[in-house]
Amino acid sequence: MTERVLLVDDEEEYLEIMSERMRARDIDVTTSTSAREALDMIATGSFDAVIMDFMMPEMNGIEALKAIKEKNPEMQIILLTGHATVEKTVEAMKAGAMDLIEKPADLDALSEKIKSAHNQKALIVAKKDQDRVIDMLKKFGM
């Protein structure tokens, strides 16, 4: 099954080239140049993962990450940053990021992370479904 990714960065040229390379690897990519637009896209679309730049205008990566996690706790979010300091990594992980990757990113390694995000999200959704069934069975006294 194809992985569905939302790639968010204010660098349009980066989005264009990165998405072309991802599509060549059979990844279904949607792009956005702002975190606010990305939030709207997540509300209406279905993605396995969001790959997002840490430093963006208006709303930075951490703020966007928290906003996404609040409404979509199962969403897997990978942050891209110019400099992955320990402080930044801890902040991102605490806020619920799946990973923090330093730019320039290695696409093969990133593709592996996307696959793992897809699997992780599928597991979370399956677990939710299972819990729902168990709740229903309990309601019927079974």
């Binding site: 390379r21 891209l80 110019g82 400099h83 320039p104 990113a105």
Partner: peptide, 24 residues
Amino acid sequence: TATISHEIKNVMAIVNENAGLLED
């Protein structure tokens, strides 16, 4: 200097993806 280095990293990221695209 931190903001400048971030900008340089952005440039490097685009050049890196272009190199990757050529490899592809």
